[in-house]
């Protein structure tokens, strides 16, 4: 039996990058689904809680959660390994005049920093939503959290870090997987920009509740109702 092909994946530069890129792309896909679910909260309590109940009634959810955890761990592990190799092989002395040659973007230059910010954010997010008390219902839990100034700031920073991370990560992952051609690479790049811009909607949701738009909307609806009755 030949197992060299398995060993080669973690123990070669390209193999590690492929593992990081593919897990990253799957995580980006998850983020899009997650965003879609979160946007349901704008439709009100019954829509959101109804969806959450339906989701949790799926017996496969615990297994999928484990899968998601594995994806995160793979992405973090191989991302750190790639960075460790780069750090190990870094220049003995840096350039006196350090200058971008025109290839780097803010997103690509800050990948490691946004990664750490996202990790911290993820832990915070898990503590406050995943492992929190769910007895009051998910809608109540989330909207109440969004009334807090500190919580909303963390949430907005997290969304911005995610947008920045994906602005490089999305198209970079395709390049790493060898999916690159002058025909469709512009499409991949544009998609990456759209996906990363969409991540800002996570921040929008929290600001929406923080600014009390839901209450205002309700108030206005009631007013409309009143005038209709009158």
């Amino acid at each position: 039996m030949n197992f060299k092909y398995i060993v080669r994946m973690p123990f070669s530069s390209i193999g590690r990058k492929i593992l990081m890129a593919s897990s990253g792309l799957l995580l980006a896909l998850f983020m899009l689904v997650h965003l879609g679910e979160n946007l349901l909260i704008l439709k009100g309590e019954s829509a959101y809680n109804g969806w959450v109940d339906l989701l949790l009634s799926n017996p496969l959810i615990p297994a999928m959660e484990v899968g998601l955890l594995v994806l995160f761990l793979l992405h973090i592990f191989f991302g750190l390994w790639v960075r460790f190799e780069d750090w190990k092989n870094s220049r003995k002395r840096n350039y006196e005049v350090n200058k971008s040659q025109g290839g780097r973007t803010i997103g690509s230059a800050t990948m490691l920093y946004t990664a750490f910010a996202l990790l911290l954010y993820l832990v915070y997010h898990m503590i406050h939503f995943r492992f929190a008390d769910h007895s009051m219902g998910f809608y109540q839990m989330v909207t109440e959290a969004f009334r807090d100034k500190f919580f909303v700031s963390i949430y907005v920073l997290g969304a911005l870090a995610l947008a920045l991370h994906l602005s490089h990560g999305f198209q970079s992952a395709f390049q790493t997987l060898g999916i690159q051609h002058e025909k469709y690479t512009p499409v991949i790049k544009a998609t990456g920009w759209i996906v990363s811009a969409l991540m800002i909607l996570f921040a929008f949701i929290s600001i929406y509740f923080f600014a009390g738009f839901d209450a205002k909307l309700q108030y206005e609806q009631e007013k409309v109702l009143e005038t209709v009755i009158e």
Binding site: K17, V82, N89, S100, G102, R104, M111, I179
Partner: peptide
């Protein structure tokens, strides 16, 4: 002891022979 690529595309920007990063994608 060469590093791992992180797709910064700085190489493509300086290459005197204008080798494109499609070379890296091809290698991958």
């Amino acid at each position: 002891g060469f590093g791992n690529c992180s797709n910064e595309y700085e190489c493509e920007a300086v290459c005197p022979k204008e080798i494109r990063i499609s070379a890296i994608a091809k290698m991958n």
